[in-house]
């Protein structure tokens, strides 16, 4: 039985130039846990998410995924930077969904989903295509396999993006404000897909402004502000009975 936390952060720091966006983040995400992160923009939620798959390098602290350090190998008491090929391999085990979808516009929905399995994992077209069709069906887009992204609505694009990330059979999914760029009426479909994923036992870290989703689906909730975690705990408790003044004032504005 694997007892490692899926994500473990200890005093993670990150600066962009003079601006310290993460000022010591400590948290743990257990396998099958759904952690939601909320907070005002600029609080460092997205940056932290991007550190988990090494799209950003942390400056200090320790960050590990599934028991292995992100971006480094540790031998004795020294850290060795990982070569690009290994960074890529580790990223391929973590799915990520972006606020702006970032689908590949020159490929059909199906090709968007099969691209990485075929090129990164060297799966055959038959195997990758079969799984892609199943995933697109699962996100409710079975008839859209041959559509190009600009022929799809925002909500449909985001669901293709989720299928694209799932096609790599990740052990962890990162969501960076997946519904923030969507028309309100399209948000529900995307949240339904994410709820389904959570029910199937996927480990998820979700940066979101959807308090309803956080309350209902999240196993834990983290409120960040100014590069630190202000408050964390059970979503119901944090949302209905916040302990910190900062959390209270944020929630009073968004709820």
């Amino acid at each position: 039985m694997n007892t490692n936390p899926m994500v473990k952060a200890e005093a993670v720091h990150k600066s962009f130039g003079r601006l310290e966006v993460l000022q010591g983040i400590d948290l743990e995400v257990q396998p099958k846990e759904v952690m939601c992160m909320i907070g005002p923009s600029g609080s460092g939620k997205s940056t932290f998410l991007r550190c988990i798959n090494h799209l950003e390098k942390i400056d200090a602290g320790r960050l590990s995924v599934d028991g292995e350090l992100v971006g480094y190998r540790e031998r004795g008491d020294r850290l060795y930077e990982l070569p690009d090929s290994e960074v890529c391999k580790k990223r391929s085990e973590i799915g990520m969904v972006f606020q702006r979808f970032n689908l590949f516009p020159h490929m059909t929905a199906l090709d968007n989903v099969t691209e990485a399995p075929m090129r990164v994992k060297r799966e055959s077209r038959a195997v990758a295509g079969e799984r892609a069709r199943r995933l697109l069906e699962r996100v409710g887009l079975a008839e859209k396999v041959n559509a190009y992204p600009n022929q799809l609505s925002g909500g449909q694009q985001q669901r293709v993006a989720i299928a694209r990330a799932l096609a790599m059979q990740p052990k962890l999914m990162l969501f960076d404000e997946p519904t923030s760029a969507l028309d309100p009426e399209l948000v529900g479909d995307v949240l339904d897909v994410m709820r389904g994923l959570a029910n199937d036992g996927m480990t998820m870290v979700v940066v979101t402004h959807e308090m309803g989703f956080a309350r209902e689906v999240g196993d834990s909730l983290v409120f960040m502000d100014g590069g630190v975690i202000v408050e964390a705990g059970n979503p119901r408790d944090v949302l209905s009975n916040p302990q910190h003044e900062r959390t209270r004032s944020f929630l009073s504005k968004v709820l």
């Binding site: 890529c88 990223r91 391929s92 970032n102 590949f104 691209e115 990485a116 090129r119 990164v120 694209r164």
Partner: peptide
């Protein structure tokens, strides 16, 4: 758009691969 290479990187593509395919 930068998001394109970011999405490709997040899927585990190397710099050469994402240049060529994306």
């Amino acid at each position: 758009e930068h998001g394109q290479s970011e999405a490709a990187q997040a899927l585990g593509m190397t710099r050469m691969l994402l240049m060529r395919r994306i």
